[in-house]
Design a protein around this nucleic acid. Structure first.
Lengths: 238, 238
DNA sequence: AAATAGAGCTGGACTAGTCCAATTTGGGAG
DNA sequence: CTCCCAAATTGGACTAGTCCAGCTCTATTT
């Protein structure tokens, strides 16, 4: 028994990790209360919470605001080179997608959006804010900004459906070139609230700038994914 | 004037964020000591540290183990579709790259590596572990695993240089198809030690599986990037 | 001028609690 | 059996410290 013990935090991490990997704590199951766990590991709640925080950073567990800690489900495979929308992508991987519309309106574009869509200053844009789930779990907060010139009256449609499909069926517009920008960062307060997680949780921010079949900038998406909800795969041809 | 409770942590974040954005704390500069800052903001070190942790998660600041907190430099643009190696990529963006070799040896392949390289069980592979810097800052820990059949005697060369170049000049091998897998996660202890940061810091794990011009699996890289050191750009053609 | 020993800082890790707000849950009324 | 309210429980936020290891810088010595 050496004095050189591993840090309490890493010891707790290892113990929990093992339990999860052996399937004693199945995917989606809830962990015991923080106070219980701190008793089990004979430590402070602060220390215990730091261990949980590290497992969260690894993506092994996640928390729901004020509800508790849960074992993370598998990540979704996200391939930017394959043109697919959320519902199709999730469904193909044997999971159940869901979408809710948080807001949808015509609004003055921010400077950032004007730049992304190459619009003149003080332009108006359609903004659609949505939250999306996989198997019931909130994983994605998106803000869509559409150039209104191409999509008159789009707010009257059912916006819980795929925008891709709406573009095609109602406006004859298909995606052409797309630009992705992926940045590991933290959720800003608005996104955190929508996903019902602690503000500042780690996240993957994906900015998509979409052109149509004629090369026209039609819209852009600001996506905020829970960092543990996806892995990005890219197959680069020769 | 916020509608909700202005948590101490978010208030501190906002204050520091503003100072950084206005350039009062330039890139690369060191923040005052935690104890000083906790006095300035009239709070505990624990609370102050949580605020710093959130700014770290956002990528605005970073820490060096036992040295202090610093303002993050700009992120490196990383485009998986553009075939470029570390030194070239960094240099093109006006930054100064550096590489050090941590270890290089022939070793039995782990089960994971066998699978990635489609090798039979108990195969041997060259393992090269390197740490890489941008403008002096440690940002990337990589483990390369090479199929030794294609690279006899490679350990005798200067491995601080680009492997890509070595492959081409010494073995006539060029990259063909490449597969990327990017996962937001946390640094494991070994990578954390190599990058001199706290174990469990957020990171972007990138697994590259490389084939040569003939479609043969030649090597794979396990990369661990500091999460705040890069942003991934992908331009998808029509 | 270079090498070095040591003191003082700095971050890292942890303890032992408190107060609050939201969520759950259990029990009683209808 | 359902619905609703109150109590118990849980996570969120924070205070006020302690002890330790590694880095740095200074002052002294060689």
């Amino acid at each position: 028994m050496r004095d050189e013990a591993p840090r309490a935090v890493t010891a707790i991490c290892r113990a929990l990790q093992e339990q999860i990997e052996r399937g004693l704590l199945p995917c989606g199951s809830q962990l015991p209360a923080e106070r219980k766990l701190s008793e089990v590991f004979d430590t402070t709640r602060i220390t215990l919470r730091e261990a949980l925080g590290q497992l969260e950073a690894q993506g092994l567990i996640y928390r729901e605001e004020r509800r508790g800690w849960f074992v993370s489900p598998p990540r979704l495979a996200y391939n930017p080179l394959v043109r697919s929308h959320f519902h199709a992508m999730v469904g193909e991987q044997g999971r159940v997608p869901a979408t809710e519309v948080l807001s949808a309106r015509l609004m003055p574009a921010s400077a950032e959006i004007c730049q992304l869509l190459e619009l003149p200053a003080l332009s108006s844009v359609y903004q659609i804010r949505r939250a999306r789930r996989i198997d019931g779990r909130l994983v994605l907060y998106v803000e869509h900004y559409l150039n209104p010139a191409y999509f008159p009256g789009i707010l009257d449609f059912d916006l819980t459906l795929s925008l891709t499909d709406l573009y095609a069926s109602e406006y004859g517009i298909h995606y052409g070139r797309v630009r992705f920008d992926m940045v590991p960062t933290a959720l800003h307060p608005e996104a955190a609230a929508a996903l019902k997680v602690a503000p500042g949780s780690p996240a993957l921010r994906i900015v998509r700038i979409n052109r149509d079949q004629h090369g026209r900038l039609i819209d852009c998406d600001l996506e905020f994914w829970r960092h543990d909800a996806l892995h990005v795969s890219v197959e680069v041809p020769d």
